[in-house]
Amino acid sequence: MKIAVCAKYVPEANANRRIDASTKRLDRSGEGALNPFDANAVEEALKARDASGDGEVVIVSVGPERALEAMRRALAMGADRVVLVSDDGAAGSDLVATSRVLAAALERESANLVLFGQQANDSDGAVLWAAVAERLQLPLISQVAELTLEDGKLRGKRQTEYGYDVIEAPLPAVVAVSDAINEPRYPSLKGIMGAKKKPQDTLSLEDLAVDAGEAGEAGSRTTVEALNDPPARGDTIKIDDDGSGAQKIVDFLAEKKAL
């Protein structure tokens, strides 16, 4: 069983995130990390690989060269190798362009299963898998909270606005998992030590035979026109609990006449 996990390089959770006013793109100059939601997809892939007895988990990402370091976390968790598409021509890609590049990288892998995490924690994007499934012409199940694989097909339980659906699809297929599906493992020291030695390939757009006009801003069909301040809202009173937190809540509620 070969499983590809699509993973994104995002700014560190504690980084002060900002959009660069001149490029109108997210400032990625600070420390980066594996998108935490993608760790759930990596975990699910490792479980599926180990249950099937053989196979491989390959991490596929599109991002700057230094994304490789962040992707090593997935290798340390137990993934087998990384394919990173890194090309200046892919920077600034929107959904249409990113899905084109990512699908081209995935086509080279011909995995039985393509997994995504539930969202990117920088852009809050939660749509890429559907565009990729479309380009690969594969069945799609999103928001999967429980995944079962057997006999060349999969069954996913997912939450919608109305409760839980159960959907089946033959493999190969594209699945986006929710963050409730599992608790991602922490990499072991041995895993971290071994991660550097695992295969890590960097590909260009040319390697993937993707035209310059299909990627980056040239291949994108949406634009960012302006950045504005959010509408004003009342200030938050934020306090650290020093043992008097409960009393302060009671006082606050009394003052707001909320009791």
Partner: peptide, 17 residues
Amino acid sequence: ADIAAALAARLGAGLNY
């Protein structure tokens, strides 16, 4: 969300979400 994103790829049309 799945329909809109897949349609964007099918048509090569821009999607803002």
